[in-house]
């Protein structure tokens, strides 16, 4: 797990980005406001359906861009502090992201 990195001072809240299924070693760039916040290499463990959790501090309402340069895929998500878990999946040739209120569980 990488250390959290934020955009600086101000009203930020902890956000977890859960890279779930099905990543097979893709390099993913997480950015907001033109600043790259994290570089993630994700590979899903089929035992759990989880590839990686990236913890960041972000502003409520801030737009995050997730991009897989090698595949030319990109998706955006608006951060909601009330739904602090962003579940990211790669399926059917698309990168998907949606926020949930409770921490996703894996077994």
């Amino acid at each position: 797990m990488a250390d959290g990195r934020g955009l600086g001072s101000g009203e930020t809240a902890p956000i977890e980005i859960h890279f779930q299924e099905i990543f097979s070693g893709e390099h993913i760039e997480v950015s907001a406001g033109g600043t790259v916040l994290a570089d993630v290499t994700a590979k899903t463990r089929f035992q759990t359906g989880l590839a990686h959790i990236e913890r960041l501090r972000l502003h409520d309402g801030e737009e995050v861009t997730l991009r897989i340069p090698a595949l030319g895929l990109e998706t955006k998500a608006v951060i909601e502090v009330a739904r602090p878990y962003l579940a990211v999946t790669l399926s059917n040739g698309r990168l998907n992201a949606h926020s949930v209120a409770t921490c996703p569980g894996y077994v």
Partner: peptide, 29 residues
């Protein structure tokens, strides 16, 4: 991995997989 992991068949290490599993009592379960 934290509270979000309730259990895992952790043994995909080495040449003989699937020998061990774990259940985490202090987790989301």
């Amino acid at each position: 991995a934290g509270r979000g992991l309730g259990g895992v068949m952790f043994d995909d290490i080495g040449g003989n997989h699937r020998q061990g599993t774990a259940i985490f009592t202090d987790s989301f379960i």
